[in-house]
């Protein structure tokens, strides 16, 4: 019996999303900036040059903009990704060798829905399908590093060129790092039980047998659940951003992380690793720091470090990877991010 046979869906939800939510989304997005200018300056006659007024205007405008973008991006990404799963990626990568396998694994890492808490079973599942450890590492690096929310937000805030550069940069790190790790005979640094684990039962592929209605429903559920988790971080991020935006101590940021500080990217990465947040929480801060004059590469490096390297995931991976491989994993990803930060700054020109 397929899952869809016995799951009655709330009737009309698909129709409501398509018929109402989408037009409302576009309308709100279109009028968001002007309505606040009209309300604050034309109606309340507030002084646009006052930093407090400007901070408030920025806060309401930016909150609505970021939440609209987040909702739209999460919904679209979830529906698109519902066609993929770890199980399916595993089948696609089965029998792939190093080289092409690393490229495929990194690319699949972007589109496969993956939570860091599944890192261990996914790793074992891949290895048991005969996928080399280096190829598996390409997947494990690409998956958190190239975040679909980050792609969407970068695209809408900074343009498609920056979003494309971000994807290309993340893919490069994942492919090269996985390939290099593969050359080091990494199997000796993987706990032996990983190779002994046999996958039993019938493998359940969550991406199969879903109707379009169910995929839309998943998109709605996922959007609600992520927004419920991150809204407070996003608001705090925007609030910090609004204060910086209103007062803009540009000299301070220029001195600490501006184009003239050669260590800016390294500082950004070192600061970003212990911080762990969703891409959604970092983005508002990134947006404001960019307008405050911090170069894009430095900000991307910070964001990638926050999103890609997290302590909870490392603790989980410790169960299957011995310290040398875990160390190499962190070192390779961190240095990859640093290199990308500097290259970005050199290309985009700050």
């Amino acid at each position: 019996m397929a899952l869809s046979d016995r799951l009655p869906l709330e009737a009309g939800k698909v129709g409501a999303v398509v018929g109402f939510a989408i037009p409302i989304w576009f309308t709100l997005f279109a009028i968001n900036e002007n309505i606040w200018n009209w309300l604050l300056f034309a109606q309340f006659r507030l002084d646009p040059t006052n930093p407090i007024v400007e901070s408030i205007r920025f806060f309401v405008y930016d909150s609505i903009k970021i939440f609209l973008l987040l909702a739209g991006i999460i919904f679209v990404a979830t529906v698109a990704r519902s066609f993929m799963s770890i199980e399916r990626t595993r089948a696609l990568l089965g029998g792939k060798r190093a080289g092409l396998g690393n490229v495929a694994a990194a690319a699949l890492g972007i589109v496969t829905p993956f939570c860091s808490c599944s890192a261990v079973p996914a790793f074992i599942g891949f290895v048991s399908a005969g996928i080399p450890v280096g190829v598996t590492m390409s997947f494990l690096i690409a998956s958190p590093l190239i975040n679909e929310i980050a792609i969407g937000l970068l695209w809408s805030l900074f343009g498609w060129e920056i979003a494309l550069l971000y994807v290309a940069a993340g893919l490069t790190i994942a492919i090269v790092a996985g390939f290099v790790i593969g050359l080091m005979k990494p199997e000796r640094w993987v706990e032996s039980f990983v190779f002994e684990t046999r996958i039993g039962g019938q493998i359940v592929d969550p991406s199969r047998g879903l109707s379009f209605r169910e995929r839309v429903q998943m998109g709605v559920e996922e959007t609600q659940s992520i927004l419920r988790k991150v809204w407070i971080y996003v608001l705090v991020g925007i609030a910090i951003g609004a204060v910086i935006h209103g007062w803009a101590p540009a000299d301070f940021f220029a001195a600490v992380a501006g184009p003239d500080n050669p260590f800016a990217v390294v500082i950004a990465v070192v600061m970003g690793i212990p911080l762990y947040s969703n891409a959604a929480g970092v983005m508002p801060i990134v947006e404001v720091l960019f307008t405050a004059g911090i170069p894009m590469g430095t900000l991307l490096a910070f964001m990638m470090a926050v999103v890609a390297l997290s302590l909870p995931e490392l603790v989980l991976l410790k169960r299957i990877l011995k310290l040398p491989l875990l160390g190499i994993f962190v070192a390779v990803v961190a240095s990859g991010i640093v290199v990308i930060g500097y290259s970005f700054n050199a290309i985009v020109g700050g």
Binding site: P113, S118, I124, G125, T197, R198, Q202, V204, R319
Partner: peptide, 15 residues
């Protein structure tokens, strides 16, 4: 236990 989870054929948790 990871090995027990895998015995169910589950690679993406929770299950």
């Amino acid at each position: 236990d990871i090995q027990d989870i895998m015995a169910y054929g589950v690679m993406s948790t929770p299950g």
